[in-house]
Amino acid sequence: MTNSENLLEVRNLKKHFPIKKGALRRVVGHVKAVDDISFNIRKGETLGLVGESGCGKTTAGRTILKLHEPTSGEAIFNGENVYDKSRSELKSLRTKMQIIFQDPYSSLNPRLPVFELVGEALREHGFVKNNREMQEKVIEIIEKCGLTREQATRYPHQFSGGQRQRICIARALALNPEFIVCDEAVSALDVSIQSQIINLLKDLQDEMGLSYLFISHDLSVVKLISDEVGVMYLGRIVEMGSKQQIFSNPRHPYTEVLLAAAPLYDPRNRARRERKLLEGDIPSPANPPSGCRFHTRCIYAQDVCKEHAPEYREIDTGHFAMCHKVNGVF
């Protein structure tokens, strides 16, 4: 499986959050936010990670960057395990892996002007020698991200949401990373701004050879930007494949309903489509269903699904799924 082209290989990653109760704060259980996921991201490509709210996409993205301590598993970046790094090694690795957050309002410190927001990390890692050099570098980066040099002295509250997200992108790009986790990076923006930001991300990818882990719940956005798509459900990746495989030939029942639930922009197509709606809510990740985690909401579910967890199997070249039906058990 090891491939020299792979920039990032995630192996059996788990992140369980303890649930504490009572005066003694005893651990009474675990929220299995990310439960055994594996995937690869090739250099210069984008992996889209989709799923409902609460399925663990965000936790997965943050755990890969070690913003959360992983419960178990590996994240191999450029051949080295992120979790084996010492503090100082991790710090220099931070220049190679960055993150863009969902909310451009809360992810920028209101007290600092753009110069500082974008330039702070440059100074921290010794990429610039003095303030003047930092300012020049910051201007170069923000202009690349579609802001003007005059805006560099302004504070976050003087920008619109889309512009703020550009600042966030500039901040992530300042250190010249190879890999960026885009954690719902466009979800907080309105549709016209979304496309601007996506185009910017794609242009930057072409220019700088970036790889993205693009986390989103919006399938149309993921379709635009991804090369590969992974579908997450309750902490697990249930289906993974190329964009074409997932969007034209979805095999897992969850992917099917997810695609069917996405809005269609042409109203003439609406009558023709099959209505497959997902019923109920996502079960609690603290107490996931036995067997296949999706069986409580799956229209095809059989007895075997309740008892045995399906294997994560390659069903076609590069197309993986975790389902008894797809695996031919029934």
């Binding site: 943050r62 960057l65 913003l67 991790l90 710090k91 220099s92 931070r94 220049t95 892996m97 960055q98 993150i99 957050f101 969902q102 909310d103 809360s106 992810s107 920028l108 410190n109 702070e120 990390a121 921290e124 890692h125 966030c168 901040r171 250190l175």
Partner: peptide, 13 residues
Amino acid sequence: AEYMKACEALGIN
């Protein structure tokens, strides 16, 4: 706050 997380991701001391 997410900007504190961002600091962590940027490796700020």
